[in-house]
Simulated scan of single mutants.
Amino acid sequence: MIAARLQTEPFDAAAEQAALISARTDLGAAVQFTGLVRADDGLVALTLEHYPAMTLAQMQAIAADAAARWPDTIGTIIHRHGRLLPGEPIVLVTTASPHRAHAFAAASFLMDWLKTKAPFWKREEWADGSSRWVEAKTSDNHAAEQWLAP
């Protein structure tokens, strides 16, 4: 099973991974990815907006897809929303499996699909007082396309 959560508050990545693998002796690998708000030139904050039920449902669908592809893999995905500052954690993907290849693949799949399929709207605020909505990146779509092949 791979659980999905939305929250405004910061997460403790080490505690999340410890909770995931606690008391499990069948696991051979744990993989973790933490995405951070990047301090691009003059970025003051990044605000993520979403429709909670729709976003959580999509995150759960992504998690279910990963669990079906790698049934021996467990995991947790957490995505924050609200106003975040540079350096703050924005997303956590942690997976564990008896086999490292499955843990790595599931983590990569989850992150690629979160970037392209989870319905978040991101607004950047800049030091000069301006702001703009973030456009989808072609590179993120290309990364996700690798998972479409059989």
Rank of each mutant, 00 (worst) to 15 (best):
M1A: 15
A4Q: 03
A4E: 03
L6R: 07
L6N: 00
Q7D: 09
P10R: 14
P10S: 13
D12M: 02
E16R: 03
Q17H: 11
Q17K: 11
A19V: 04
L20T: 03
L20G: 01
L20C: 09
L20K: 05
I21C: 07
S22T: 11
R24D: 09
T25L: 08
F33L: 00
G35K: 01
G35R: 02
G35H: 05
A39W: 08
A39V: 07
D40N: 11
D40H: 11
L43I: 00
L43V: 13
E49S: 15
H50R: 15
H50C: 14
A53M: 14
M54L: 05
L56P: 03
A57R: 15
A57I: 12
M59W: 03
Q60F: 04
Q60K: 14
A61N: 11
I62Q: 06
A64M: 10
A66R: 07
R69G: 01
W70D: 00
P71F: 04
D72T: 13
G75W: 04
T76K: 07
I77N: 09
I78R: 00
H79G: 03
R80H: 10
H81L: 12
H81N: 08
G82V: 05
P86Y: 11
G87Q: 09
I90V: 14
V91Y: 07
L92G: 06
V93A: 05
T95I: 03
A96S: 11
A96F: 04
S97K: 03
P98H: 11
R100Y: 00
H102N: 09
A105M: 07
A105W: 06
L110D: 01
M111I: 06
D112H: 00
W113D: 04
T116N: 06
R123M: 12
E124V: 03
E125R: 10
D128E: 02
D128K: 06
S131G: 04
R132S: 13
W133P: 01
E135Y: 10
K137D: 05
K137E: 12
T138G: 09
D140M: 02
A144W: 03
Q146R: 15
A149T: 15
P150S: 14
